[in-house]
Design a protein around this nucleic acid. Structure first.
Lengths: 207, 207
DNA sequence: GCTCACACGTGACAC
DNA sequence: TGTGTCACGTGTGAG
């Protein structure tokens, strides 16, 4: 279907028909010979140049290069893409399991819907009070519903946030916990009362 | 320097010189015409095939493809590599800052080690005392090393065993926790002092 | 008709 | 010396 012709394909090439585009572009049609020059000559040339540029571009963003030639550029790109894909997979996997473990410490949402009404019936309101004792110490008073594990979880969450409860007193009444405690802060750290209060309220609301 | 020759470049092409490799390979040199065939004809052909295969390979591992042609395959590969690089950077950044926060909690290990020596240096011994108040109540006194989270863990474990701490007082000295508390037991359950004491000691030894 | 993308065969060049 | 790679100009089919 292709190359069906039997004729002779003759091309004359002069001495300066090198890769100079301007030269060949100028003499595309006004040659002394026939009109042998194909019309898509410089179109094809531009296409080749574009492809070469892109190949160089592909090579330039690849840190792992073994050789300059077209084939190895592509092979290097393939191996690099595979490496990046593996890396992404591994990283997202690590990230997921880290999120899972950190959720595990902050979790525990699986229990008790009891004694809630008790506290309300006695007219006791949940409460968080934070007061400053000195530059390194806060005093906190917390009243929360008495649920099994809620105090433990409060301790745990505070511990997770790096807050140290120095002297703690926990009193249990019907339906409520009364917690009074001191929060110690390391020297040099800023002590934000509102910040601590908001944190405590967030923890309690999450229970 | 190149194309210095003045000669005529003549090529005869017959009717069945299509892309069939076996056909052209067979008749590479034993033609009726001259020896016009270049020696690297099928070498070049193989090179082209190899490059095409690799290009297809590059296309196959790229999930984002816009077009089939050579140029866009490479452009797609470039954009995909850039996307993967961004992704890797973002993920590793997230991972690092997550590690930083979790190291913040692990940073307490230094405190723990110091605290252990502190307690020993002060001549404080770990201790568990359990005494019976009435048929439903126990009084416990616990002295343990001050480690971050150990009190929280104690609470949690007791909670897990269904033991309710009614009124708890936690005092922190240099290197030790002093915990005094009441243990409430439901009516009808047997209250075994030694059992509770052993449980507490087991918990403390496991920390 | 035209444009675009590709495959082809070939000479030049480097190792 | 060959062996591999590249750019070139061209033919050709698809849209």
């Amino acid at each position: 279907m292709e190359h069906e012709h039997e004729d002779w394909l003759c091309v004359t090439i002069e001495e300066n028909d090198c890769s100079s585009q301007s030269m060949s572009r100028k003499r595309n049609y006004d040659d002394n010979t026939r009109e042998f020059k194909s019309k898509n000559l410089e179109v094809e040339r531009r296409r080749r140049e574009k492809l070469s540029r892109r190949l160089l571009m592909l090579r330039s963003i690849n840190p792992i290069i073994t050789n300059m030639n077209r084939g190895t550029i592509i092979v290097d790109a393939i191996t690099y893409i595979e490496k990046l894909q593996d890396e992404v997979q591994s990283l997202s996997q690590q990230l997921h399991q880290m999120e899972a473990t950190s959720e595990e410490t902050a979790e525990t949402k699986i229990d008790e819907i009891e004694a809630v009404e008790d506290m309300k019936n006695w007219g006791i309101q949940a409460e968080v009070i934070v007061a400053q004792i000195d530059e390194n110490k806060l005093w906190v008073k917390i009243i929360i519903e008495k649920k099994r594990g809620s105090f433990s979880k409060l301790m745990e969450t505070l511990n997770y946030f790096g807050i140290e409860l120095i002297d703690t007193n926990l009193t249990t009444t019907k339906g409520a916990f009364l917690i009074t405690s001191c929060i110690q802060v390391k020297d040099g750290e800023r002590l934000q009362i509102n910040q601590i209060k908001n944190l405590l309220e967030d923890i309690i609301n999450d229970m």
